[in-house]
Every structure is written in structure tokens, then in C-alpha cells.
């Protein structure tokens, strides 16, 4: 017998959320959604959640199982019982207001999708037949187009937890779907927008979105593709881009990071406020002798590394 510990919330009845436990013997092969349906249809009809396709394509039934976002229809319930535990904790998605039980308000999610101008921009008169696109070009956007907008990545995004201004993984993946599309002509405008605060450079690399994505969309990898396009396009007047360039330069030069230079080069030599921000921590570390050696020592055979950088176009 498994215990489903479900976070309940119904402001019509009670202002505060609470957890309620339901016992249910998980039938073989039952998905989490099957179990929730059993509880709703046989035990408590007020239990509220979204669902529709139950084949992992509509994106309705995203919620948290044992603290991590997932699609209820895609998850075998028994797989949520680990280490002999008999309890599965079910909660609504994170980073969104809760409406009732497991149903959350997606407004901000969609607003952010809207912000990236989520449609093809091409001013040319279309040809009579299809526009040409090679299989290789198609492959560049293949993964991003598998996104089902379920919100699982958004829910568990570490940056969104602390900064609601961040576009978030789903919207950025959607942006990559157009930036990477050979038919789209707004690459530079898009990249400029995405390079602003709250955009792609605000991603903290935590990998949660890759882990939670139920499809091959895996937003973090799409974000990295955006960054590469940003650098390629020369949209570098921002800390994120300068940081990447400084980093590459440093490793090319000596095979390892020059930690003293990178913060300064990233902020930009003329970014007075940014540089001033570095002063307290810099001084603090200096006082503790917690600074890199004054003379930056390259790795052995740094020459070979430099050669490889050059071979690959840096």
C-alpha cells in the first residue's frame, strides 16, 4: 500500500494549504495520473489537477512528485517509491501561484513566452511552394520544437525562484527555436533582446530544466546554443558575453583561468559601477591572501592547448 501525500489548497474553504494522505495500492503499470484519477473518481472528487492527452504531448499534467517537476501521465507511480519508502509526495508546480490543489496559474509563463516574439519573422514574400530547409538546418531546431509548454522547467528553475524577471527556460527554448530556424530573419534583433538583463545570460547553468524536461527540448542546451549565436553575431556589449570571451582568451593563453582578470574584463573596463561592486570582495580576498598568484602560471605544455584553440577557430 502506498501513501499519496498530496498538497491541498482550496481558498474557498481554507486560506492555508495543507497536506492530505491517501492510501492506494498502485496497480502494476499505473502512471501517477492513473493513481490521481483513481483517487479523484473514487475517493475525493474535489481533488483538482489538469490532465488531457495522458500521452505526454499536451503538457497539462505537470506537477511535482517528491519535490521535482514531472508529467503525471508519463511517470510510473511505482518509480516514485524509492528506498523502500511508501510515500509519494505530490505538490503543485513551483514558481507559479496556485489556484487550487495541483492547478497553478500559468499567466506569467505565457507572458514570458510572448516576450520572445514566438513566431517566425520573415519579411520576404513567400515562394509559391515551400521554403527550402535542409535536414541539417531542420535538426538545429528539432529539439526545441519538441517543447510541449508543460511548465516543468519553469517550475524548478533555480533563477526564477529568486528573480521573477528571468525569462525562464521554456521561453528561452522557444527563442532558440526561431534563432536557430534558417527561415527566420530576426536573429540579430532577437539576440539583442535576449542579451538584456533577465535574458539568456542570466541562466545559472543549474541543469534543472534539462533534468525536468519530459521531452528532448532540454532548455539549458538551447540556451547555450543561443549564447553561441550571440557571440557569433558579435552582440557582446554585456557582462555575460564579455565573461565568455574573457574566459576563452584566458584559457587559450595559459591553459587555465586567470581569475584576477576575468571579473574585470567581464564587467568591462568602463563599467564603473560593476567594477566598484567587485572592490569589497576583492579587498576581502586580498586581505586573506585568498587571491590567485600574482604571476599567472600557465599549465605545462600550454602551447599545445593554444594550438588546439587555434585549430578550432579561436
Amino acid at each position: 500500500m502506498a501513501k499519496f501525500r498530496i498538497k491541498r489548497y482550496n481558498p474557498e474553504k481554507q486560506a492555508e494549504p495543507y497536506y492530505e494522505e491517501f492510501d492506494y495500492d498502485i496497480p502494476e503499470g499505473a502512471t501517477l495520473l492513473d493513481c490521481l484519477n483513481h483517487l479523484k473518481w473514487n475517493v475525493d472528487g474535489t481533488l483538482t489537477y489538469r490532465m488531457s492527452c495522458r500521452s505526454a504531448i499536451c503538457g497539462s499534467c505537470a506537477m511535482k512528485g517528491n519535490g521535482h517537476a514531472l508529467l503525471a501521465c508519463q511517470k510510473q507511480a511505482a518509480h516514485l517509491l524509492k528506498d523502500g519508502s511508501d510515500t509519494i509526495t505530490i505538490e503543485p508546480l513551483g514558481n507559479m501561484p496556485v489556484i487550487k490543489d495541483l492547478a497553478t496559474d500559468f499567466q506569467q509563463f505565457w507572458d514570458k513566452v510572448d516576450q520572445v516574439k514566438p513566431y517566425l519573422q520573415n519579411k520576404e514574400k513567400p515562394p509559391e511552394r515551400e521554403r527550402q530547409q535542409s535536414p541539417q538546418q531542420f535538426r538545429k531546431i528539432d529539439d526545441a520544437t519538441t517543447c510541449i509548454m508543460c511548465g516543468a522547467c519553469y517550475s524548478d528553475c533555480n533563477v526564477l525562484e529568486v528573480d521573477k524577471n528571468f525569462l525562464g527556460p521554456a521561453a528561452l527554448a522557444k527563442a532558440q527555436r526561431f534563432v536557430g530556424d534558417s527561415r527566420d530573419q530576426a536573429t540579430r534583433d532577437r539576440i539583442k533582446e535576449l542579451s538584456k538583463p533577465g535574458g539568456m545570460w542570466d541562466c545559472t547553468h543549474c541543469g534543472e530544466c534539462v533534468e525536468r524536461c519530459p521531452k528532448p527540448a532540454e532548455p539549458f542546451y538551447r540556451i547555450k546554443e543561443l549564447m553561441a549565436v550571440g557571440l557569433e553575431e558579435g552582440v557582446t556589449n554585456n557582462v555575460g558575453a564579455r565573461h565568455a570571451l574573457s574566459f576563452v582568451k584566458s584559457v587559450k593563453h595559459s591553459g587555465r583561468l586567470n581569475e584576477s582578470k576575468i571579473p574585470i574584463e567581464s564587467m568591462g573596463y568602463f563599467n564603473i559601477k560593476g567594477l566598484l561592486d567587485l572592490v569589497p570582495v576583492g579587498l576581502r580576498m586580498l586581505l586573506k591572501m585568498k587571491i590567485p598568484p600574482i604571476i599567472h602560471k600557465p599549465i605545462d605544455d600550454a602551447k599545445d592547448v593554444r594550438r588546439i584553440f587555434e585549430e578550432f577557430g579561436e
Binding site: 513566431y119 517566425l120 509559391e128 511552394r129 521554403r131 527550402q132 535542409s134 535536414p135 531542420f138 526561431f178
Partner: peptide, 19 residues
């Protein structure tokens, strides 16, 4: 189909870039 393609719908492609 061409309209959908012009709107931006992604289609798998032949080697010569057609749908």
C-alpha cells in the same frame, strides 16, 4: 501545407530541402 510552412511550421525535409 505551403501556408503552414510559410507560417513557420517545421517539417522533416528531403535532402534537397523540400518537405
Amino acid at each position: 501545407i505551403y501556408e503552414l510552412e510559410h507560417m513557420g511550421c517545421t517539417f522533416s525535409r528531403t535532402e534537397d530541402g523540400k518537405i
